[in-house]
Amino acid sequence: MVKVFIYPTTSLILSDLVARFGHTPLSAALQIREHIQTPGLESPPLQITPEDPKKGLKWAAVEVPSGVRGRMSLYGPMLEQAEAAIIIHDADFSFGCMGCARTNELIQFLLRKRGIPVLDLRYPRTEEEGIEFVAAIKKFLNELAGGGA
């Protein structure tokens, strides 16, 4: 079982695909759930406090906007755990959406810097492309060490 970082990290479809093929998806939902369920915090909607952008300094310098650093405080620990990654380019908003383009660029750069296996795919626009899209993800996940199905 391999920990697979998914991009967009909010994609439930991608998260489900990774889990279905026997691996652990690293997705935003889990990180955000952890934040929301942490008792004692009162900073809705995501329970991110002004302390979190400071934690993000580990991945982005102080001159980087606070929104990027706050996001990195969520995604940074996931990046460090990642053993593989699937990156979907030009995804439709309904598939999964990550709000800040600068954070997205940084995440993709840091993933590649880790030297882990990365699958780059363009978001499918036709049914035929959709079938190829799922097949490519399945093949990638099966080839990862310990892959199932």
Binding site: S43, P44, P45, E51, P53, S66, V68, L74, G99, C100
Partner: peptide, 14 residues
């Protein structure tokens, strides 16, 4: 907006 919820300042705005 873009970013206040990730900067921990949405609560301040509210």
């Amino acid at each position: 907006s873009c970013g206040p919820e990730y900067s921990g300042v949405q609560r301040e705005i509210n």
